[in-house]
Design a protein around this nucleic acid. Sequence first.
DNA 1: CATGAATGAGGTTTCATTCAT
DNA 2: TATGAATGAAACCTCATTCAT
Lengths: 216, 216, 216, 216
Amino acid sequence: MKSRLPPAFGPRKMPVQARAALTVEAIFEATIQVLLSHGMERLTTTRVAERAGVSVGTLYQYYPNKQSLLFALLQQHMESVLGAVETACEQSRGAPLAEMLRNVVEQFVDAKMRRPDISTALYRISADVDGPALLKRTGERSRKALERMIKTAPDLPSAPEPFAIAMMYSAMAGATRSVLEAGASPTMVRKLREHLVVLCQSYMASVSQWRVSAER
Amino acid sequence: MKSRLPPAFGPRKMPVQARAALTVEAIFEATIQVLLSHGMERLTTTRVAERAGVSVGTLYQYYPNKQSLLFALLQQHMESVLGAVETACEQSRGAPLAEMLRNVVEQFVDAKMRRPDISTALYRISADVDGPALLKRTGERSRKALERMIKTAPDLPSAPEPFAIAMMYSAMAGATRSVLEAGASPTMVRKLREHLVVLCQSYMASVSQWRVSAER
Amino acid sequence: MKSRLPPAFGPRKMPVQARAALTVEAIFEATIQVLLSHGMERLTTTRVAERAGVSVGTLYQYYPNKQSLLFALLQQHMESVLGAVETACEQSRGAPLAEMLRNVVEQFVDAKMRRPDISTALYRISADVDGPALLKRTGERSRKALERMIKTAPDLPSAPEPFAIAMMYSAMAGATRSVLEAGASPTMVRKLREHLVVLCQSYMASVSQWRVSAER
Amino acid sequence: MKSRLPPAFGPRKMPVQARAALTVEAIFEATIQVLLSHGMERLTTTRVAERAGVSVGTLYQYYPNKQSLLFALLQQHMESVLGAVETACEQSRGAPLAEMLRNVVEQFVDAKMRRPDISTALYRISADVDGPALLKRTGERSRKALERMIKTAPDLPSAPEPFAIAMMYSAMAGATRSVLEAGASPTMVRKLREHLVVLCQSYMASVSQWRVSAER
DNA sequence: CATGAATGAGGTTTCATTCAT
DNA sequence: TATGAATGAAACCTCATTCAT
């Protein structure tokens, strides 16, 4: 007989003892393993705990429910990608547009490819765990970082509108996803990087001009 | 599925096939509804049948199991988008590159936006129901159609490599998805169309030149 | 991964087929059996289903959750006791007070003792399943029925105040409970009946007089 | 938790027993709190320990299991009520019956209302923790105390039979419970006290006469 | 063919209790 | 002694699927 409390979110408690940190890490890694080997539909908390070498009870001491576990996983990943993008944006301020975009693309692709298994696994989650909401938040932040950077480009006739930047970002994401789901062989990753740079550069060039001419 | 006696005048009663078609249609529609209102995780066959106004038993007479229902749904959608792209490619043969791309982009976006609810709902499925496999198949066919079309462009110095075309397609898909998940307001859809055209045109232009120069 | 819906109450659906009614009845009876043999703490839905000779799933088709099952049980019992009291009140209108109270007490005790096992079992439930709320409702209705009846007594100097009637009822309930929990041997039940009549009669007599004198 | 340097004055450290007593007290109080806020079904040892400001381990050092904790709580409460009744009985020996009953009722109600929250909370427990057994024991002792007292009443034609006394006590308990579960406002408590006195007095009077007449 | 009652394996989550630190 | 992380049996509940009517 349960009274339904509003489900909490985010990790339940911070480990204070030493071994607890290990446990949390093990659970995290196990979740990815199970996701990859069994798929989202067959990802059960029991299986995750088993793979992590702990009991279900332990899992639930750190995550109040299954959602929160998946959410944490997704969030950490997005945060890491976002961080890479934001850093690249910060460090490229004042550089020529072409260089800017090259830096950003490379950092973005690198971040996604650091753990291709995780990146791929998380596509399975995002639909269930508040995918859109989280995506909107990180998408927004990426867009802002990109916008701030692009404003400082010395060789750009005029700043492209926000929509264009958002679109560039989602195009990057789409292309990267496609490569990841196709297996992400080193060759393809290299090509992806090069082509994405070209795509971004040419698109940004076009929309600036286009917008300028439209405004004239 | 038996064939009945030949009716003298017109159908004596609604032909079996026609009735079945209605039922299938109702089930399809119900699946979308449930998917949107309850999410993939709470999409149950009972619920779908209920919404469709039939009994579970009936549902199972048309689809042997849940997967097959979802798979059929996904397949139909992809087929329709693919069809739009293929038609556009076919009809644009011999046209200038810019026009080609405009046609394709517009048909693609139109196909996706014909039923934004369906398009959005299916993102929730694709992860579970053999998403990658199906995507790879349709992605491949799209790429081929695009390739065949682009070869006929009179104003292209050299055909872009297959990878570039695949990337363009996945970028289109990514950007469109992003707009759909953000709500797909008419304004955004219009902008998406315009910007995607620019993105594709400028990217294709770049990779042709770039490839040429790289080859020299 | 569950989304928490507000727990519904009351039976989930009405049986339309014939065997369904039997199933519901079997579940009801099984609940009482389990309650008596295992106690509230060890009353599990699985055990109830088992005892009823059906599967858990079946149980959940008629009751959305454990609470609703227990609630239904409690409600039916209280309704039956309440019905007995209301009938007795209705039929005793206009009779001398002593006879009124005798009738009510006898009907009340009879109703409680019709199935002493159920009555006893339900004491275990009432604390958990919204006991107070349900008690308040039925208590209120009993009080009103008693009040309406007592107003028609020809030999009462003045009507007792509502509180007195409520107290009489709760005293009856308390004494009956005590006897039930002590085993409810026929001898004790007989004594209970006789003594309760005396208790009610003397108390009512006293409060009427007392109130009169207080008002003078 | 280390003990510091011995302070010059006052106890070197809090004596073990005293500290233990505080802990036990805190646990007791926490149990009530949790019982009232979460209900019996969601009363967990962890939660109690948390609320009491100690760890679960500590709790288990004072009580070997959950039952023993609840049992101790219930027992203490009943003991305190029983004590009040026994004292009142002792002190009223030789007084007129009306005064006796007034004293007993007032002490009983006072004891129950000293901590209405506890009294109410314990109704939730009694069903699970050997309720009937404990009740029978304290009920028996109360009855005996009452019996001993009543025998000394100078103005009673004949002693009422044991059953009558038991019933009077259970009626008192029932009425009090009803008031407690209804919220126990000061007004209601005052009325309860007055009415219970009347109820007991009139009932005792009746059964003595009745018994006498039955015996004649 | 349609219905919907029944099934039961399996999923999520809780919680009394233990024990290494 | 106190702590709180870990345990895992067991509870509640869901849902794809079957089959008698």
